[in-house]
Amino acid sequence: MSDGTRHDELEASVAAWVLGALEPPEAQTIAAHAEGCATCREVAVRLRHVVGALPVAVDEVTPPARLRGRLLAAAAASRGRTERPIAMRRSPRLAPVPRSAAGRMPLYAMAAVAVVALLIGVLVGQIAAQRSQGTAQEQVARFTLTGHEDMAGAKATVVDLKADGVALLDFRGLPPPGANRVYEVWLVPAQGSPVPAAVFVPDAGGGKVVLVNRALAGYAVMAVTNEPAPDGSSQPSQQPRLYGNVA
């Protein structure tokens, strides 16, 4: 195939490319071509101007009122713009709380976690059955922590047992924390500094069930960082890459 024929073929796909209508391999091919082809690059820039206008045609829809608070809490937790660790906030830190360090638990406590996990299943099932009575949301709330960047494959389901003042965290897809490292769970209030809640090491499959012996009420975000073993840190030493709203 001549260069001219190849160019014609690729240029014919530029519109589909800027509309996001190519499969990733095709998009990569045309992106590479456009890097060195002034004609295709010019067409792409011109058509992207138009594609950028398309969403303006959509009617505005008022989002749920809670979304604004969720966003600002997540932004506060990420601290992505300040390039400072979470703990460098200027507001007074809340007093550290005793941790439920699943990775260092005595056997009886680990057994308790297993029992609680089983009871959770029973309890959630019972509550689901009572949903018509409007009690489920009063007793149990579920949240999701989502991984980002190098922890994009990780997630956790948080079951907040409000009546008992504890939360169960079911982690999946965690990468190994590294030698002499642990994961540390933080609870972040809407205003104030992160509070350490637990440290743990995932199993070989990247999973772990962790009990946080603390009520989640009053906290906006739960986040996880990688910290030195065995006790973690009193303040986060890095930006969290696994976090989610718990309010």
Binding site: P55, V56, V58, D59, E60, V61, T62, P63, L67, R68, L71, L72, A75
Partner: peptide
């Protein structure tokens, strides 16, 4: 600034 950005465009963003 993030709050302002949200207040300006949240309706449009959610609509999309």
């Amino acid at each position: 600034a993030l709050a302002e950005l949200y207040d300006r465009y949240a309706g449009l963003a959610y609509g999309v």
